[in-house]
Design a protein around this nucleic acid. Structure first.
Lengths: 137, 137
DNA sequence: CTAATTGCTCTAGCGACTAGAGGTTCAAGA
DNA sequence: TCTTGAACCTCTAGTCGCTAGAGCAATTAG
């Protein structure tokens, strides 16, 4: 039996975050001690590790709840889980593409400044005048 | 003189967002019509375009406010503007690196599922068992 | 002149936490 | 057994950058 602090240490999820997950119905309300403190077992540890892993991969709370519900029905077809993972992959790729554009833009802005004062600072000029940009963004 | 709706159309910034920027002191409180409606001039249009461009590049509201204050003092050295741009570039690069890892991970998870039911679904197994991951993340 | 559109202020909500107040319980040492 | 200090409890409010809606006033096109 783990206290919430021990669970936190073992999973790397902060204590208030664990309570937040309970509120969001990602974690079930656990047993309590005589003094009303949360007591967790091994299955809750695994579940929290699952949640943390999924969050690290950028899945939304709602998607994770969906996956948890799915994993409770091992006989169902797994097409839904597959879909969630594929959607997530597509969104990550989109975010990467957008950030790459920003990177190129910022690279140009941040490395071209040879002015000495704000008046001729390339950073500020570039931000003021969109037409200096090479790409759309 | 533009109304807030016209300013919105010309800059692509939504009306409530313009009001929000005013509240956040990115935009100065503009003149008003007799009926208390906001009336903008060309300089406000340019300023909003500046803000929008900076937001598109992922700069935080606070950083933008800093840049605007800087640009009001054209005789100051531009080292601060330079620093803001460089910091932003570093943070964008960090985000890209993190997302690339997620991409690889999700690619593997989303393409390896050959199970038919949730019980042997690779997506759910991979999320449950962190040791299946190749990289740290 | 009327009706549709646009504008105004104010408040509340989003997602995923994080921080703090004010109080209670637990565990270890004396 | 007692004490002390860390960890726990609930509840509320704040973060960021908007977005939505209520309930009203002003503007503008026909």
């Amino acid at each position: 039996m783990y206290s919430i602090g021990e669970l936190s240490r073992r999973t790397g999820v902060k204590v208030p975050t664990i309570r937040y997950y309970e509120q969001m119905r990602l974690m079930e309300a656990p047993e309590r001690s005589d003094g009303n403190q949360r007591r967790y077992g091994k299955s809750e540890l695994e579940r929290l590790a699952f949640i943390r892993h999924a969050r690290d991969l950028g899945l939304a709370i709602d998607s994770i709840r969906e996956l948890i519900e799915l994993s409770g029905h091992p006989d169902m077809p797994c097409a839904d889980a597959d879909r969630i993972a594929k959607e997530q992959l597509a969104s990550v790729r989109g975010r990467i593409a957008r950030l790459r554009k920003l990177e190129r833009e910022l690279e140009r802005i941040a490395t071209c400044c040879i002015g000495e004062t704000v008046g001729d600072c390339y950073v500020i000029r570039a931000l003021s005048d969109h037409t200096l940009c090479r790409d759309e963004h």
